[in-house]
């Protein structure tokens, strides 16, 4: 790639990984092929430090203020927010469904935990997604079959998001998402 490498500026606090924000709009009436999905998803910005993140994020629209079929994605640089990416093809995601009004504060807490390496699952985290319309968040990891990792991600989410009682959570492998692209399935976890 000819793009200039993003590095932390002087006196800035570097992050463990560079991250890229992406934005996409869903077209609900048409089933989405991976090709049209890729065309529909746009890179916004890549950052390498805490300060670069805030310079962008402070001016960004909050998920709670957006309407319609929009997703924001925040992924490690080099990982596309697509099932087909090498980092994602054996992976899965936690789905967290929230009540209206909680989307913006929870999204911020989720991404701060990710940027600050609070999950402590090595290289496993790929990125996070907020789907505005359904007030849903997803956190994607590399290895869906690694139950110790997925349990640890769940426990960290519960801590850092301070999830209210009756929050619905479900883990779904990307393979299952491809086969059954609907939303939440029958196996849900309710935090009490």
């Amino acid at each position: 790639s000819k793009r200039k490498a993003v590095i932390p500026g002087p006196a800035e606090h570097p992050l463990q990984y560079n991250y890229t924000f992406w934005y996409s709009r869903r077209t609900p009436s048409h089933p989405t092929s991976s090709q049209s999905y890729e065309q529909n998803i746009k890179q916004i910005i890549t950052f390498a430090s805490v300060e670069q993140f805030w310079r962008f994020y402070s001016h960004m629209v909050c998920p709670g203020d957006l309407t319609g079929h929009s997703d924001f994605h925040l992924f490690k640089e080099g990982i596309k927010p697509m099932w087909e990416d090498d980092a994602n093809k054996n992976g899965g995601k936690w789905i967290i469904q929230l009540w209206k009004g909680l989307a913006s504060p929870c999204w911020e807490n989720l991404i701060l935990a990710m940027l600050g390496e609070q999950f402590m699952v090595g290289e496993e985290i790929c990125g996070a997604v907020v789907f505005v319309r359904f007030q849903e968040f997803y956190i994607w990891n590399k290895t869906a079959s690694d139950q110790a990792t997925t349990a640890r991600i769940r426990d960290t989410l519960q801590q850092v998001l301070n999830l209210p009682p009756n929050t619905i959570m479900e883990y779904k492998t990307h393979t299952d998402s491809i086969k059954m692209p609907g939303r939440l399935g029958p196996q849900r976890l309710l935090f009490q």
Binding site: G9, Q16, V50, E51, N109, L112, G116, E117
Partner: peptide, 21 residues
């Protein structure tokens, strides 16, 4: 190797730093 970790409180403090604006 060492991982660069930041807690939420620290990250929020950085938000107000002059170089983050």
């Amino acid at each position: 190797g060492t991982r660069i970790m930041y807690d939420r409180k620290f990250l929020l403090e950085c938000k107000n730093s002059p170089i983050a604006r």
